[in-house]
Design a protein around this nucleic acid. Structure first.
Lengths: 339, 339
DNA sequence: TTGTAGGCGTTATCAG
DNA sequence: CTGATAACGCCTACAA
């Protein structure tokens, strides 16, 4: 299929290519009604489709957004096993498409940054999930495009952030357990990294303990990866050596499912023997039996908010918030028992 | 960050931009060892990053692959709720990135096709999941780029297909149930569309019934969408009116989970009262309690095979199979009971 | 209101 | 082996 260019359209309409370009870019007022209709007709007849590469070259605007999600250590595969990211992406993609952008979804190779991709593709903006080493962000800033961070507490005004109050979430979860009579509460979590969401949830956990006159016991913390498998291992460990633990706060729903599996595998029932609370309320949580009590955030909305925020920045809107905090709420279902 | 161009590199190295272009494109033998080293040095010093838009314009090669996945009817959100697609994408993305390509992931708007995107972005190829109306494929062919279909039995040699033997899978699942003494087997499934995978699984189901001397009973077929919710509804329906049904073949794991939920919600236990078998073996299936008996396909591998096949076509390899059928196997776990 | 022409970064052709 | 130079498709001063 030979490419129809703007010149073909111009020729067919009997006008110059500049005129065509004008109507293509919404500057229709620069053109007489007559020419306008001729051009529109020609575009339709020829079924003209613009070439974004050329546009990007001339314009420095690609209508391309980079979306980065974390990946597994070993396989360098995207962490799509975690439905959290899937839902985020659903929200992002829908909003982007509806606004005329396309999404390049990728992970970033170990040791490499994202500067290359940004420059190669002339990205108009990027949404970054997960947390990376500092040089990663410094590189990103050099490219000088709007960037939205999800799941990061990097304190730098260059970046926009769409977050939730993770500390509060950790506090809410822990408090809910305490209010149900639990005193020895384990924390099963991914790596507690500075400026990461997990750290905040951890801090909320500790604050709740303290405010309720309970001691923080480091032995109750099972730190590993944010994965089902780590949950399973922790569940097993707890089952084999209870040490008085009656409840578990898992900092992600997927982890919580793992914990439940690890426990029940060893005959420990949830919530009869041990209560479990999660975090995120991924769509799976409704499907799982028993239905998981968790701290809910609206993940899809968060994705579309991130996309919207990015688009606003790109398009030069004035009042773009540099930080947006979305609400969370406790969802009480079947995995926490009053004791 | 001002863009460093090939000219800057040429200037710095004291050579022409053509020479630089040569070494950039691996035609290093067209250049003297001395110039080569000077150019390499300049590239490194200036931290030159090529502009793919320009390259695409000049070359008609974008190193961009379009990946299309189905979306929900209402929200036009990607069907990432279904882990099947997530895993596929993991496989695809990893392979593409490792081969120097980027992935544009999107759904396609109702009523629109994918021709626009393909042309706008100068896609080098595309991977299409799900099935669409015929005009969709006809449009795609016009663009004249390699295309890999997943989950389609469209009979057209233009397209490559990476599939499994869905008919056999349906047969295996049903046969497994029959061999465990079941005679009244319900089928819970997405829409049975011509040339779709679901149709093949359905045909395998019927063949197994027939070969084992059982009658096909249309009343036992619960046709709806490939979703958890449809599973739940069907499960409820079965629970409230058993009609002798002792086993269910769900044509997707997610659907199977729904069925199980719908059943147990009404006090019907799996597998004690009713056996359930699924299809796909998504990673979730290991996590679910009870562990789902299912027909396994290696989804991630399928994704990376699709990507590899596409890349081979793009790069003009000779021996690219037009159709690849990956193995499947029965995975016996805990949801089928012998009666 | 309309058209001409130069440039965006890269590649490829074709003389030197 | 090397270096101009003309595309590629589009946009946008600037001139008419």
């Amino acid at each position: 299929m030979k490419r129809i260019t703007i010149k073909d359209v111009a020729q067919r309409a009997g006008v110059s290519s500049a005129a065509v370009s004008y109507v293509l870019n919404g500057r229709e007022h620069k053109v007489s009604a007559d020419t306008l209709s001729k051009i529109k007709k020609a575009i339709a007849e020829l079924n003209y489709i613009p070439d974004y590469s050329a546009r990007s070259l001339a314009n420095n605007k690609s209508n391309l957004i980079g979306v980065v999600i974390p990946q597994t250590e070993d396989q360098s595969q995207l962490l799509l096993e975690n439905p959290f990211y899937c839902e985020l992406i659903c929200g992002i993609e829908a909003k982007l498409r509806q606004s005329g952008y396309h999404m390049i979804l990728s992970g970033v190779n170990k040791g490499e940054g994202y500067l290359d991709v940004s420059m190669q593709r002339n990205l108009d903006g990027a949404i970054i999930m997960g947390i990376y080493q500092e040089s990663f962000y410094e590189d990103l800033k050099k490219v000088n495009i709007p960037i939205v961070l999800i799941d990061s507490y990097i304190n730098d005004n260059y970046f926009k952030r769409i977050g939730i109050d993770d500390e509060l979430g950790g506090y809410m979860a822990t408090t809910h357990l305490i209010e149900n009579g639990h005193q020895n509460i384990a924390l099963v979590t991914g790596t507690i990294r500075k400026d990461g969401v997990v750290e905040k949830r951890f801090l909320g956990y500790k604050r709740s303990l303290k405010e309720h006159g309970l001691f923080y016991n480091p032995d109750y913390v099972f730190e590993g990866s944010v994965s089902y498998d780590h949950g399973v291992e922790s569940g097993r460990a707890i089952a084999s050596d209870r040490r008085g633990i009656t409840a578990v706060f898992a900092t992600g729903d997927l982890v919580a499912f793992g914990v439940i599996a690890g426990l029940s595998e060893n005959g420990v029932k949830v919530p009869e023997d041990i209560s479990v609370i999660g975090f995120d309320d991924i769509s799976l949580s409704k499907m799982f039996v028993p239905r998981l009590t968790t701290v809910r955030q609206d993940i899809v909305t968060r994705g579309s908010a991130a996309a919207q925020c990015l688009i606003d920045s790109i398009e030069g809107k004035e009042d773009v918030e540099t930080e947006l905090t979305l609400p969370i709420e406790l969802v009480v279902r079947d995995t926490v028992k009053r004791i």
